[in-house]
């Protein structure tokens, strides 16, 4: 169980959220939704210590998470990545093994095998030696998922993994998430497309400067909750269209 307690993060004197508490269960894919600026990415960054919280922390099995970051694979939202960097696909995936290697040790045969296997899993073995700027958005995202595989982590966190990528890549990434779920890992996905919520997630966390609701999708993904956090319009569109599909 990944447990966040009493987490407060402040940006420029304005609290993003205060005393936030939430848990993430192993063997589940947990989605986090909420309007822009609700603090979804900040929650993740606060948990990992990428942003320094005013108070609180995340812990796994009672131990602080930021002391065991090699158990975490974090696939960040790709906005300002340097696509001209002289690095190829294989070496990006290989960097997933760096955390467990520690300082001064170079990746050896085992690590390279690990990276090759991860690349194969996302179906990009043929692209191993390609410079990363010469990939489509979907392929690039699969490369970062392959890196997460190579990290052999227990906790996998993806921030908006499906933004701007093709359906095939989205499908393949979803398959990987399900494999991780079967392996009993904790999987957290920040997501914006409310249409896919019921199809993709087991548990759901709704955020708006704090936790609005959390639990199994069937209990949390309700017209009332969506209306409260997003808008009446969105709620009625989403839920009537779903009712229509079912009918």
């Amino acid at each position: 169980m990944l447990k966040v307690t009493n987490l407060t993060v402040v940006y420029d004197d304005l609290p993003v959220f205060k005393q936030l508490a939430v848990t993430f269960a192993p063997g589940k894919i947990t989605g986090i939704i909420g309007p822009n600026g609700a603090g979804k990415s900040t929650l993740i960054k606060g948990m990992l210590g990428l942003v320094k919280p005013q108070s609180g922390s995340a812990s796994i099995a009672g131990q602080p998470l930021n002391k065991q970051l090699t158990r975490v694979a974090y696939v960040e939202q790709r906005k300002d990545l340097d696509l001209t960097f002289p690095i190829n696909v294989f070496d990006v995936v290989l960097s997933g093994t760096y955390g467990k290697l520690g300082l001064f040790r170079s990746p050896g045969k085992n690590e390279k095998k690990q990276a090759a296997a991860a690349l194969e899993q996302v179906g990009l073995s043929d692209y191993a030696s390609r410079q990363i700027g010469n990939l489509s958005g979907g392929q690039l995202q699969r490369v970062f998922v392959a890196r997460a595989i190579a990290q052999k982590a227990d906790i996998i966190i993806l921030d908006e993994p499906f933004v701007g990528i093709d359906l095939k890549s989205e499908h393949e990434i979803m398959q990987i998430l399900k494999q991780w779920r079967s392996a009993g890992k904790i999987i957290i996905v920040i997501h914006h497309d409310l249409n896919k919520v019921t199809a993709y997630f087991d548990d759901l966390v709704i955020m708006d400067h704090g936790i609005e609701a959390a639990g199994p999708v069937a209990q949390v993904y309700t017209p009332e909750n969506i209306r409260q956090v997003f808008s009446d319009d969105l709620s009625s569109v989403l839920f009537t269209s779903q009712a229509g599909e079912r009918g």
Partner: peptide, 22 residues
Amino acid sequence: IFMYKELLITSFDPVFAQSYGL
């Protein structure tokens, strides 16, 4: 030579490097 992979990853993807505890 000794910091090669650290120099590589902090140059290419510093947030990732931080996320695994570097």
